[in-house]
Simulated assay, not measured.
Amino acid sequence: MMETSPVYSVARDASGNAWKALFDLAGGLIREYDQEAMVSVSKFVDQLPSVMNQVTEGVSEFKPTPPENREFCKSSYSVANTLLVKFSVDAIDDTDIIEDILRPRVDSIGGQIKKVVLSGTHLTPCIQDVKWQVGSEYTPADALAQGLKSLALNETRVLSRTIADYFRSL
């Protein structure tokens, strides 16, 4: 394990504290509008120091690793009907590889795999609907916020509909 200098550790801690301060500020704004979003942001912020420490120590993969996942799928997967979702802009996507691994197992149990390619990125499933409360006057900031929110959530809505439609079809 690589040792870090005390100066580096303090800088890393300061960086984590800066993130925490930023999210505390955002949390103050969110708290007024959506308690569920506040809980989500809080959980995210609580994980940041641990993740930042892992990254600074050289961790670039988390557990289980993609090869471990592939091996598990190859030897143990047993879901007959499977939906695979691939996003159009995702540099770390393994959907095609997973489909090739799963196909023989799913075929052997008489199931089927459906793969869809949707517009979006690796983070599309993580986008949350932050409630924006318009004040007593509708301002340009309100219009901008609602427009950006609508654009950001469009891909997530398509994903939700796709999953719901898939389950309805079973």
Score class of each variant (00 low, 15 high):
66 P>K: 00
46 D>N: 13
50 S>E: 15
31 R>F: 12
80 A>N: 09
29 L>R: 15
90 D>C: 02
141 A>I: 12
131 K>D: 12
106 V>R: 03
98 I>M: 08
154 N>K: 13
55 V>T: 12
163 I>N: 07
16 G>M: 09
15 S>R: 07
134 V>P: 00
132 W>A: 03
84 L>R: 00
41 V>H: 03
154 N>Q: 14
57 E>K: 12
95 T>Y: 05
53 N>M: 12
70 R>T: 05
69 N>K: 02
83 L>W: 02
81 N>G: 03
92 I>R: 05
89 V>E: 05
110 G>F: 06
9 S>V: 10
95 T>G: 02
66 P>D: 02
80 A>Q: 14
26 A>V: 09
110 G>T: 01
48 L>S: 09
146 Q>D: 13
93 D>I: 00
48 L>R: 05
61 E>R: 06
48 L>E: 09
163 I>Y: 07
43 K>C: 07
14 A>M: 14
16 G>H: 05
133 Q>R: 14
43 K>I: 14
162 T>I: 12
6 P>V: 13
167 F>H: 08
106 V>L: 06
63 K>I: 09
42 S>C: 04
73 C>N: 04
31 R>P: 07
106 V>W: 00
57 E>P: 01
14 A>K: 07
109 I>Y: 02
69 N>Y: 03
151 L>N: 05
163 I>L: 08
119 S>W: 06
53 N>V: 07
167 F>M: 11
52 M>T: 08
87 F>I: 02
50 S>P: 00
134 V>H: 02
127 I>F: 11
114 K>Y: 10
124 T>A: 02
82 T>D: 01
170 L>E: 04
86 K>P: 01
36 E>F: 07
2 M>G: 03
137 E>M: 10
18 A>E: 09
33 Y>Q: 15
63 K>W: 14
54 Q>G: 14
19 W>Y: 15
4 T>C: 10
170 L>Q: 12
127 I>Q: 04
122 H>Q: 11
112 Q>I: 09
68 E>Y: 02
20 K>V: 07
167 F>G: 02
69 N>M: 08
167 F>K: 04
92 I>E: 07
121 T>I: 09
20 K>L: 14
80 A>D: 05
6 P>F: 08
23 F>P: 00
106 V>M: 08
18 A>T: 14
53 N>F: 11
121 T>K: 05
41 V>W: 08
104 P>K: 04
25 L>A: 15
143 A>L: 09
154 N>T: 06
7 V>A: 15
98 I>C: 03
83 L>G: 03
147 G>N: 15
113 I>S: 04
161 R>T: 13
40 S>Q: 14
9 S>N: 12
19 W>K: 01
164 A>E: 09
26 A>T: 10
27 G>W: 02
50 S>H: 12
10 V>C: 10
134 V>F: 05
101 I>D: 01
46 D>G: 07
111 G>Y: 02
143 A>S: 13
114 K>D: 10
14 A>Y: 12
138 Y>S: 01
112 Q>N: 15
102 L>E: 01
95 T>Q: 03
84 L>H: 03
